[in-house]
Amino acid sequence: MKFTLQIWRQANNKAQGKMVDYQIDNINANMSFLEMMDVLNDQIIRKGEEPVAFDHDCREGICGMCSMHINGRAHGPLKLSTTCQLYMRNFTDGETITIEPFRAKAFPVLKDLIVNRGAFDNIQAAGGFISVSTGQVKDANNIPINKEDADMAFYAAACIGCGACVAACKNASASLFVSAKVSQYALLPQGQTERNERVLAMVNQMEVEGFGSCTNTGACEAECPKGISISNIARMNRDYISAAISAK
């Protein structure tokens, strides 16, 4: 397969970036998108130029490291998929593919397609955990948990923090990410002790990081590689409202 690639090139955080065109040929349809990027970089390096910097790690769709806004969509055109799980057979031969970094004020571009998603770490660190006194391992059945709640908590916990929700949202809102991290504890008995403090701390941090507000377009849910539901956003708002009212 043959493609014209339009890729955002930016030398560093301070530099002016621009779209640069590349031609690439002899691409196997069963290559992953990132493998195609590897082939491109090989080609660029052989010419003695600077390869395209992009984030990647597990290449199994579970780490949340790969990003890229491909043809106007976070993680490309495939539903419920990260960029690493996107294959070249999902494109048509001869197509022009535009590749841009995730765009948000809170996700500054470090180089080319790499953005700093540290804002998510700061939100997590603000309250996305439970304080547990370590001691002996308790029997797993000590705390009964409703199966439905356990499943819902699990679906929320499936969030890999890739930032596609922010990238897809017209307001660059982090509501889906934060709500998933709030919900995975809010749904379980272990999360109740710090439920109010957690949602306040995480929502406050979300504001500090400079994300936009949620207008319920549903773009985040549609582009989320893990299919996190926006019902989590309703839960976060509910918890935030009640925590803000009862806060001392």
């Binding site: 339009q6 955002w8 779209m19 806004h69 043809n71 106007g72 969509r73 055109p77 535009t98 841009e100 765009r103 897809a168 017209k170 377009t217 549903g218 773009a219 549609a222 582009e223």
Partner: peptide, 10 residues
């Protein structure tokens, strides 16, 4: 974004 296909998701 240079290219944004919002119609696909909302």
């Amino acid at each position: 974004y240079q290219v944004e296909k919002a119609s696909a998701n909302s």
